[in-house]
Design a protein around this nucleic acid. Structure first.
Lengths: 193, 193
DNA sequence: TAGTCCATGTAAGATGTTACATGATTCA
DNA sequence: TGAATCATGTAACATCTTACATGGACTA
C-alpha cells in the first residue's frame, strides 16, 4: 500500500497489456487478421481474453502505431478484404523481453494468467532452455509463496466462517496443484532431451 | 436496467461489479471505512482486488449513490475523521441476489474468482443450506465442463507445442482440483450437521 | 430471399491505474 | 523533527464493455 514513490516515469510509451502480448504471440506463430484472433479467443480454452471487436481492433491499432506489428490488406479472391498482421522485429524483441522477465511474487499472487500465457508461448518463441528456466523460477516462487498462505490459514482459521475458510483452502490447493505441475512439466522437458 | 425517478430524468442503473460486491460483502460483515477495506485487500490473500484509493473510494461513492451503502462521519477521538459505511436493506438484498444467482458455464470458464468470492461470503450472508446448494451446483457445472477441456486437449494435442500443451494441462488440472475441492467442501458441511 | 459466416470498425460510457495531494496523530 | 500510519480524496489517462453499423459472399 505504498503510493508515494519518488521515482518519476521518464518514458512516455505505455506498457503493453496482457491482451496485446497475447495478440503479439499469436501473430508471431502465424500472421493473422483481427478476425482470426477473435476466433482464436472464442473457440479455444483461452479463458482470460475477450473476443469482442471493441477490444481486439483497437488493441491491434495500438500495436501497429507502436510499430510492433504491421498490417497489409489482402485483396482479391472472394470475401471482404481483410488486414493480415505480421510482427515486426521490434515487436518480436518486445515479446521476447516479456517472455524473459523475471518472475516476481507479485506475478504469482496477482498475474498467474499472464504467467501461464508466457509459458504457453515459451518454447516456440524463446526455446526449450528458456522454458525450463522459466519453470524452475516459477516452481521456486511458488515454493516460497505457498507456506505464507498456509501460515495465514493457520493463524486465522478459527476466526473465519466455514465458507471463507474453505475458499482459502481452495486457493491453497490450487497453488499446490500448480506447484506439482511445474515439477511434472520440468520432467517432461528433461525426457525430451 | 433503466428506470425513471421522480424528476422524470432517466437514470441508468448499471450492473454491480465484482469489486463492488466484495465491498458490499465486507461491509455487511462489519461496518467499514474505505481505509479498512483497502487494508483488507492489501493484508489478506484476496488476490483479485486492488487496494488503490482510486479504485476503492469511487466505488464506495457509487454504492452510496445507489443507496446500497450509507456512510456516516465518525467525529471526535483522535485521528482524522473517517467515514464508516453500513449496508442498507437495498444493499443487502442486492448482495443476496448476487449470492443466489445460478451458476453458469460462463461463470466457470471466465469468472471463477467471482464464484469463489460468492462462496466465501455464502454461509454468513445466506446460510449453510445455500452454501451447500451452491457447492452442488458448482460441482455439477465443473463436471460438465472438464470433459470438454479434456476433449479439446485430446483433439489438439499433436498440433500443440510442448509448452502450449503443458499450459492447457495445467488449466485442466486446476479445474480437477477445484472439482475435488467441491466434494470435500460438501463433506465438510455434512459433517457440521 | 433470408440467414449465417466472414470481416472490420466506431461511439459512448464505465471502470480501473498511476500519480498527486492533503491533513491529523503517534512514536522514535 | 521527521517518519510512519491513519484517512480520504481527485485528475489524467488507458482500457474494456456494450451496442451499433456496414458490407461481401455463401447456402438452404
Amino acid at each position: 500500500m505504498t503510493y508515494y514513490n519518488s521515482t518519476r516515469r521518464m518514458v512516455e510509451e505505455h506498457s503493453t497489456t496482457t491482451l496485446a502480448f497475447a495478440l503479439l504471440g499469436l501473430t508471431l506463430q502465424k500472421p493473422s487478421s483481427g478476425y482470426d484472433l477473435r476466433k482464436f479467443f472464442s473457440s479455444t480454452p483461452t479463458n482470460t481474453f475477450s473476443d469482442s471487436p471493441g477490444a481486439i481492433y483497437p488493441a491491434l491499432r495500438r500495436l501497429e502505431r507502436r510499430d510492433l506489428i504491421r498490417g497489409q490488406v489482402e485483396v482479391g479472391h472472394g470475401r471482404r478484404e481483410r488486414r493480415l498482421f505480421q510482427v515486426t522485429p521490434r515487436g518480436r524483441a518486445e515479446f521476447q523481453r516479456w517472455l524473459m522477465r523475471p518472475i516476481s511474487r507479485d506475478d504469482v499472487v496477482h498475474h498467474l494468467d499472464a504467467l501461464m500465457l508466457r509459458f504457453a508461448f515459451m518454447d516456440e518463441a524463446a526455446g526449450r532452455a528458456a522454458a525450463r528456466r522459466f519453470l524452475k523460477a516459477f516452481r521456486k516462487e511458488l515454493a516460497s509463496y505457498i507456506p505464507s498462505l498456509r501460515e495465514y490459514l493457520k493463524s486465522n482459521r478459527s476466526a473465519m466462517p466455514l465458507s471463507g475458510r474453505l475458499a482459502l483452502e481452495s486457493g491453497i490447493r490450487s497453488y499446490e496443484t500448480l506447484f506439482r505441475w511445474t515439477k511434472t512439466a520440468i520432467a517432461a522437458y528433461q525426457k525430451e532431451n
